[in-house]
Design a protein around this nucleic acid. Structure first.
Lengths: 226, 226
DNA sequence: TGAATAGTGTCTTTCAGACAATATGCC
DNA sequence: GGCATATTGTCTGAAAGACACTATTCA
């Protein structure tokens, strides 16, 4: 790394963070998109993001943007990949550090109060053509999410504090896009010893109530899942 | 992402790429480091890297730096993580996109011809305190390497074109830092059907010659290994 | 024939996957 | 009792892991 130079005499790229925000809403995996109202890619939908300030870390920038778009804090956030093709933005050189976030559907409801005319949750099966290289970023994020689901416990961040095994299974099925055998799923998930039986049951359902579970730990863990 | 602004009216961070270059030399996993001859961190060892030019992609920048440091092309290269703490460089804001590279020990020999007074291969068990946050970057790279070794076929990039099963096993053992059972290793690796028997044997050894194998494909593949 | 490394097979245990009947609560 | 969902166990096949002896070449 050259250091004798004056760093400021060179042109520098702009640096942004983009955040792929996933949630499960109405039994579908959805991603939060915003509609651009200026060129380039005016009227295209895009992944939310913004410039990194000079005195904030990348993660802090991602958290700030997330907060601005959704009003939600305390979510699962993970750096995804850095995209830096010289021509990915037609205006100037922009390098973007992408993050992906998982938000619990309950907290998402809060967000409906913000002015959301040009903000929308899209089912990942119905995402329109996106601005810039955001299609590629989204595909990458989806791949990572599926991988994370199978090999770690991140799923906790999509669920409420307490949940039934059926809800947990449904979440896996929605994200993986395939059905799972109920008995095998339960056998496997319980054998991992990452759930705690709360001794409570669902109420006010017109059928047999289900046991409610919580995660023993919400620290991210690498575990062989499913 | 704001777009109505003039992008150039803001301060921008500098962007570099740093490359963790691994190889196996003398039966040890080694990493290439360079000694800094200017402040800050003068005389500290550091991971090689440099600024990203305005018209080159991140990967192109990494390949260029790799070439400059080692004279080697055609290696395994993968983006690792982007480090961007505001104070990671005491001079100014520098965001670094780290890559890790795997180089075949044979090709490495070529490099000895460059002026290498302040370039050195360090066994990963003997790395000194590094400049900036490079300790952290190296730790991260090592973790990723071990993971990749177990779940993909990247090991091909550390070996010669043809190799014996014993050499292959030795490579795994060196990187994972543990011994493996010879019969189980062979059973597993052959069952994956990623190797091809060349019908040739090692020569000029004073013991039973070993079969030489090659990889059927050198395209990166996700595979459950070991 | 001794030194050095190559090469090979069985048993046990664990885990994934296929598969269907009973239990409970509410109306 | 009927409806809706919750809960539970067995069998089979595949793969992982423990473990030791024979084969080949050269000096």
């Amino acid at each position: 790394m050259p250091t004798a130079y004056n760093l400021d005499k060179f042109d520098k790229p702009s640096v942004t963070v983009d955040i792929i925000i996933f949630s499960i809403i109405s039994n579908e995996l959805k991603v939060l998109l915003i509609k651009r109202n200026v060129e380039p890619f005016k009227k295209f939908w895009a992944i939310p993001g913004g410039f990194v300030k000079m005195d904030e870390s990348l993660e802090a920038a991602a958290i700030r943007e997330l907060q601005e778009e959704t009003g939600v804090k305390d979510v699962y956030l993970e750096q995804l990949y850095t995209f830096g093709d010289p021509n990915r933005d037609p205006r100037t050189r922009v390098i973007t550090v992408s993050y992906f976030a998982l938000i619990n559907a309950e907290k998402v409801k809060l967000m409906a109060t913000t002015d959301a005319s040009d903000v929308n949750w899209y089912s990942i099966t119905k995402v329109p053509k996106l601005a810039f290289d955001h299609d590629k970023i989204l595909r990458y994020a989806l791949q990572r999410l599926r991988w994370k689901l199978e090999y770690t416990n991140v799923v906790y961040s999509l669920l409420s504090e307490r949940f039934t095994l059926t809800e947990l299974q449904r979440t896996y099925e929605i994200i993986l896009g395939k059905t799972l055998d109920k008995r095998n799923f339960r056998k496997k998930i319980l054998s991992l010893k990452i759930l705690k039986d709360t001794k409570q049951y669902t109420k006010e359902v017109s059928h047999r109530p289900a046991k409610l579970y919580t995660f023993l730990s919400k620290a991210p863990q690498i575990i062989e899942f499913i």
